[in-house]
Design a protein around this nucleic acid. Sequence first.
DNA 1: CGATTTCCCTAGCGGTCGCTACAGAAAAGA
DNA 2: TCTTTTCTGTAGCGACCGCTAGGGAAATCG
Lengths: 209, 209
Amino acid sequence: MVDGAEAKPQVKAGKSRGRPRSFDRTTALERAVLAFWEHGYEATSVSDLTRAMGIGAPSLYAAFGDKQALFAEVVEEYGTRYGSFADRALAEEPTARAAVARILREAAAEYTAPGRPHGCLVIHAATNCTTPEVEESLRTRRNANLAAFERRIAADIAAGELPVDLDAAALARHAGAVVQGMSQQARDGASRAELEALAEIAMTIWPRT
Amino acid sequence: MVDGAEAKPQVKAGKSRGRPRSFDRTTALERAVLAFWEHGYEATSVSDLTRAMGIGAPSLYAAFGDKQALFAEVVEEYGTRYGSFADRALAEEPTARAAVARILREAAAEYTAPGRPHGCLVIHAATNCTTPEVEESLRTRRNANLAAFERRIAADIAAGELPVDLDAAALARHAGAVVQGMSQQARDGASRAELEALAEIAMTIWPRT
DNA sequence: CGATTTCCCTAGCGGTCGCTACAGAAAAGA
DNA sequence: TCTTTTCTGTAGCGACCGCTAGGGAAATCG
């Protein structure tokens, strides 16, 4: 009973013994992503989830553990599928400036993409949450993103790409604040073009290399 | 029954007829502000409220109507008591640039003030809310703030204080995004000094007058 | 002093929450 | 075929939600 969520016998390539699961776990998870993304952790009830995922409550609990464990998987899935553009830019672009510029421009598109909830799940899905661990986990993720910005900027300073007297932490916070503000405004109805104009203005703070 | 909330006979200077209210409505409201500010609309239950306000549920309903009406009063009170620094700056400062600079600096202090919940109630208290009207009302307030920014900037452009080719809407969105990002980061544990450094960086985008 | 008006407290309403016991259905193994 | 294993659907658990009926308490009025 304790490790009911860990045991996923059906996933093994070999044939499992009993009756096989009648739904696709991956697509069910994807639907849960959309539900949590749109309404947040608390505002998405288990019956909302079962309706969106097309399965019964016992199946949900058998496949994912409980609501909180399902949300953790949802956040993970969201991170790899929708939220990885920032990490990718930080890793691929030659300079911190180019990386942040790309992040802001892509955020304008990502946060207003049609057919998906607007804004960022990590920023919004657990604000004002009565389950402290859930709120805490997303807070940790947000602060980790700020730290990633700061590391990239510090690396550029060390490499001589940016002035040595630059406040890497403050610059990282600024970039993070702009991203978070863009996400909020996307939720509040801003269009992609409006967010792109915002992003371009935000980029003018950077010292030209 | 319909206008139970409107009738506040006790407030009239003249003596009311029956048994007087045994609690101070204003201080009870102030405590409700802090409760909603800290945990948001949905995550603050009526029993949380009665505990924080030191009154019974029937007294709460008699004095404020229902939870939603109480929240509306809370938002109003918050606006006049804690959230008016932006409007004041926009009205008092000679230029849009000075106003936004002051808003960002004051936000750093307001959003991290000790003894109060961090961040802004209007930005956070009704994200992912199952009561659409409540979420909508705060969204409207946020967008009204952006519009106020834009009007002030447009006025400066018209007065020759800012370049005529400036995109007032985008600049307003940027200022708003920075404020919203600062509020989010205050909730996530940023200190006043960290937010002040962020604010200073954000101000460097403005054309010097 | 009653009579009247208003408030507070106890208790509990119907509804939804996250979650699960249980029994039947559907697969694999013998 | 029969047993074993696992999944699914019904039905409902206890807890909490927002909210309120109803009786007594405390004030003003005559």
